[in-house]
């Protein structure tokens, strides 16, 4: 039960590794970026999971309701920021891939590497 109770954290770890693997193992730059995005999303999941308070509800103060248990809003705010960062990183990465494709004619890492070797 203990193990299953940390279900979300297991998913976090698995996603993290999948993303990391893709970044390292794939030669295709787009796939690398996708791996990076998965890698980052895993962390978002971790933050979302930790803010959950058992029996807690959305942290909105309502008239007449007292002693309400709220989920912790702070990690959600944090992760919104982190998502923005992640999106811009992916966007910038894709922009670089586009320019690499324009100049090298390829998005395969080893082909790009070979193109720059002194002839």
């Amino acid at each position: 039960m203990e193990v299953l109770g940390y279900y979300n954290y297991w998913v976090f770890a698995v996603l993290l590794m999948i993303g990391f693997y893709a970044v390292i193992a794939r030669s295709n730059l787009i796939k690398k970026l996708l791996g990076l995005a998965i890698f980052q999303s895993a962390v978002f999941l971790m933050y979302i999971t930790m803010n959950k308070v058992e029996g807690g509800t959305a942290p909105i103060i309502q008239k007449g309701v007292v002693d309400q248990i709220f989920s912790n809003p702070l990690p959600q705010v944090l992760i919104l920021t982190a998502i923005v960062v992640g999106v811009s990183t992916t966007a910038l990465g894709l922009a670089i891939v586009v320019r690499i494709k324009e100049t090298y004619g390829s998005i395969e890492e080893h082909e790009i590497f070979e193109a720059d070797l002194p002839k």
Binding site: L36, G93, Y104, D116
Partner: peptide, 19 residues
């Protein structure tokens, strides 16, 4: 043009570091 693959590498490693 070699800046592009270099910066891609930097971006990937930098993002992993930040994450």
């Amino acid at each position: 043009r070699r800046a592009l693959p270099s910066v891609f590498k930097y971006l990937v490693m930098g993002t992993i570091g930040a994450t």
